[in-house]
């Protein structure tokens, strides 16, 4: 389990997966272009937030980066390797978490089993992960009976196992109430402190303001702006981005 104190969290050395290079990537399906010619490079452990309205293509972009989807054109590499070769070093949290029809503990155990870890070690790691996410009391409950917030914390705990270098989160709090959102954001902060790189998507401007070190603004599948957070929020250059942070509906 990752060292919670973060003392060993040397941000540079733990990121064997960076830089993430997305080179002229497009994704077309069924006649629509969901991602169009996106280029960017992520090099350090700052918290990156991909911001944009619904339908911008944020989820698609995240899935492309993780290797769940294959770009129609262009290339994606993590430290020079294709996404498929490095799945084990990344965690992915979906907007709606997928809960197996098992107990909370079994959901975590399952990920470890998939990675080929032996039973005694799995037990230890599972217990630690449950502690970490504050779910120890719910260990034996069927995961599907948990609240939205609890399920999302479980999903993050799952992603957190085995010390991932990068954690991708796709609108993790979109369906949660403020209390649960707070708990999830705290967990993300702790995750960040261990040295994992956080790449998160959201359409919630205030959440982006709270969490982002760096912002990428996506709209209609185009990357319209990529800047450090203070710079972006004080005055975005692209008119659509500006309109968005003012709360306008941009078409």
């Amino acid at each position: 389990m990752a060292d919670p104190s973060g003392a060993a969290g040397n941000s540079i050395s733990r990121n064997g997966l960076l830089p993430l290079v997305v080179d002229k990537v497009s994704y077309r399906v069924g006649g629509s272009t969901l991602i169009d010619g996106v280029c960017f490079r992520l090099e350090d452990n700052r918290r990156t937030v991909i911001l944009g309205p619904n339908g911008a293509g944020k989820s698609v972009l995240l899935r492309l980066c993780h290797g769940l989807l294959t770009p129609t054109s262009g290339r994606i590499t993590w430290a020079g390797t294709a996404p498929a070769g490095t799945t084990g070093q990344r965690g992915l949290v979906f907007q709606r978490p997928v809960m197996l029809r098992r107990s909370v503990a079994a959901n975590i155990d399952h990920v470890l089993k998939v990675r080929g870890i032996d039973r005694p070690e799995r037990r230890e790691l599972t217990d630690a992960a449950l502690e970490q996410a504050g779910l120890a009391a719910l260990a034996l409950r069927p995961a599907r009976t948990l609240s939205g917030g609890e399920q999302q914390r479980l999903a993050i705990a799952r992603a957190w196992l085995l010390e991932p270098s990068v954690v991708l989160l796709d609108e993790p709090t979109a369906n949660l109430d403020p209390g649960a959102t707070r708990a999830v954001e705290d967990l993300i902060a702790r995750l960040d402190a261990t040295g994992a790189k956080i790449i998160m998507t959201t359409h919630d401007i205030t959440q982006a303001r709270r969490l982002a070190d760096e912002v990428m603004f996506l709209h209609h599948g185009h990357l319209l702006e990529h800047a450090p957070a203070p710079e972006f929020f004080s005055g975005p250059r692209h008119p659509d981005a500006a309109g968005f942070i003012e709360g306008k509906l941009i078409i």
Partner: peptide, 24 residues
Amino acid sequence: EYDEHLRAIGSGPGQRMATLLWDG
């Protein structure tokens, strides 16, 4: 329901089948 999650955690085809059978 499960496919994305199983692929996201790096499950092989045999493992996926076993997971689906057990959960079902």
